[in-house]
Each structure stands twice: as C-alpha cells, then as structure tokens.
Design a protein around this nucleic acid. Sequence first.
DNA 1: TGATAAACAAAAATCATTTTCATTTAGAAT
DNA 2: ATTCTAAATGAAAATGATTTTTGTTTATCA
Lengths: 140, 140
Amino acid sequence: MIDKFIEILREHNLKKTPKRIAILQLLESQSTYISPLELWDILKQQFTRIGLPTVYRILQQFQEIGIVASIQKEDNQLYYFLCSTQQDHHHFICRKCHKVSCVEYCDFDTIKQLVENQLQSKAETHFLQIEGLCKECRDS
Amino acid sequence: MIDKFIEILREHNLKKTPKRIAILQLLESQSTYISPLELWDILKQQFTRIGLPTVYRILQQFQEIGIVASIQKEDNQLYYFLCSTQQDHHHFICRKCHKVSCVEYCDFDTIKQLVENQLQSKAETHFLQIEGLCKECRDS
DNA sequence: TGATAAACAAAAATCATTTTCATTTAGAAT
DNA sequence: ATTCTAAATGAAAATGATTTTTGTTTATCA
Ligand SMILES: [Mn+2]
Ligand SMILES: [Mn+2]
Ligand SMILES: [Zn+2]
Ligand SMILES: [Zn+2]
C-alpha cells in the first residue's frame, strides 16, 4: 500500500525520504486524525533529529497531492488523516477514538436546487462532516 | 430588532454596554461574516478607546448565548455573523461578498441511517456549510 | 561518482487569540 | 441622587500554533 503512495510522490517530484515514509506508515497504521504536534511526538521516538516544521510541510504537501485530507474542529487547529479517494464524499468522525471513515453519500444536487429556489443563489461547493461514535466505541 | 438582543443579554446577566450595542448594530447592518480584527477596525472609528480583546470577548459571549454563529474557513480563523435562529439549520455563504444566509434544510435522518447501515456507527451531530455566489453577486 | 534540486533542522518570526490585572462602568439597591 | 458591587474594559504581556529563513544534508539521476 505504501508503494502506491511512493508512486504518487514521484509523480509530483517529491522524493522518497525516511520522514515521509514514516509519516505515511503512521497514518496508515491508525485510521484516526492527528495533529502535526501529536505526529511529531511519535516521530521523535524514531528519529533523533526531526523538526516540527518538517511535519507541517510534509502534511501540507500530502494534502496538496491528495494523499491526506483535513478535518474541521472547534479549536481551529490542523488535523490530518489518510484519504486518497478522489471521488466526492464526506467523513464520519468518532468523537471518542478519532477514527475517520469515508461516507459514500452526497446529496449535493438536492442542496443545490434548494439554494437556487430558496435564495436564488448558486451553490458551488459544500462541506459536510458527521460526528458520533464508531462501531467499536459505541459498543464498549 | 436590537431590543430583542438587549433582552437576551439581560436574560444572561450581560450588561447593555455601548460596545455591545455597537457590535450588534454593525452585525445587523451587514449580513456578512466578519473577523474580530475586521470588526475592531470599524469600531475604532466610533470609539477612541476599544481593545481587541473586548471584541473577541463580546463575540464569544454572543455565540454562547446564541446570538451569533461562526463559519469555518480554510484559514482556520474566527469569523462570526448574526444568527439567532435556534432551529437546526445550515448556512449558505457567498464567496464573493461574504453574505451568510440560513438554509432551511436538513437531511440528518437520512445521513444517520446511512452511517448506521454503512459503518454500524452512531451519528450524533453534523456540520454542513454551502458556498457559492449569492443572488446579487451571481448576476453582477 | 558527481551534480543538482529537493529536503531538512534549528532558530527565529509571525500572528491570531487569550490571559492578567488594574481601572472603569452599568444597573440595582439604598 | 448616591452608593454599592459585579461585570466590563483597556493595555500590556503571554500563549501557542503555524510559517519563514538560512545554512547544511540528502535523494535521485546522469
Ligand atoms: Mn456532499
Ligand atoms: Mn443538517
Ligand atoms: Zn471510535
Ligand atoms: Zn454575494
């Protein structure tokens, strides 16, 4: 699976570096969202030298090339998670374990119509995020 | 209309102060979202002494008592607008003039079912924000 | 085995937001 | 009207996330 991402890196002239690979592996091992600082704390155990700006930069680049996506939280900080599905879709977030799951559902056409009818405005984009408890967290 | 808000302030033991009234009037005169800094810049023309923390504080309090709401932007900064509708609804935002309109539509039941079926998870809350061009901006 | 562009660490800078604290004010009670 | 008290405020400093800068190192390719 990592190989697929390395290939995407190459396509975008991004080199295959130990830091990038480690970040990809970490993001893949857990399907949860994570902040640059949290990621840095984990990476510091693997690397004697690793700067926080590097973590920020890599996550930004990953987002630009469509490997990761970000979530919106009340605290207005950055949180990323692995998501390379290009198709229009949304995310379900577990408020307890922070796991992120893709939701294959989009009712944008209905919304578009509604905005057109109610407000005579043109809806172009939308952002939907669902929160709750994942299968595991809701049972336990 | 301002009187209604003053009443809400009183209900929450918040005093009717010149700064609070000015902010309410400004928010009401334009139906656009605004950042604390932008609001401060305008208020500085009316008041010889007005601190930025005051603007932050008042907007926060207004949000807590349900007079204003905030929007989510890519830059992760705070933006507020007047919205005292308590009913579950969403917002349409004009990307050009920053006007915010309430959208009377919510399909949460469908989403809930879908999340239950697809992920066996429990959807509790959701956030939807629609962007585009408002009636005026799309015509011009 | 170079050459070269990209990646990196470290330190400092930036900048939005919050905290602290001394002073002022709104609103209620005399 | 005067006094009282909790709430509100301004100024300055603190905080903390994110970004920029710069000199050095590294991955990739010829
Ligand atoms: Mn959708
Ligand atoms: Mn809804
Ligand atoms: Zn969970
Ligand atoms: Zn507009």
